[in-house]
Amino acid sequence: MALKKILLVDDSCTARLVNRMIFSQKSNYELISAVDGKEAVERARQDKPDLILMDIMMPRMTGLEACRLIKQDKTTSGIPVILLTTRGEESYVQEGYASGCSDYLTKPVNDAELLNLFKAYLGE
């Protein structure tokens, strides 16, 4: 069975590493990564991941903008995007959903919460 491909997008290497460890230690996923929104859009088009976990505050292109572009592109619009941010206030959450994201998680990430969400989206 082919491994599910997950695209991790964060400009912080600490955050990317934590997310990578959460997935690699507890589940069988193929993990790919990008360091900003612009690279995320390119990798989404090129690699067609099964799911994207993306930070919002990033240089060059924010996660919100990248999410909008991914959802506008017919070839990537079906990929679920989970936005990850430090801001949990209602206005930020609404802005996140307006960009077309499937779900919205706040940092610091809870391992079980993240894995359960992924399992639900990936139909496991």
Binding site: S12, T86, P108
Partner: peptide
């Protein structure tokens, strides 16, 4: 980054 991403303060 550790404070922001792992502890939770900006």
């Amino acid at each position: 980054e550790i404070v922001s991403n792992l502890i939770g303060s900006e």
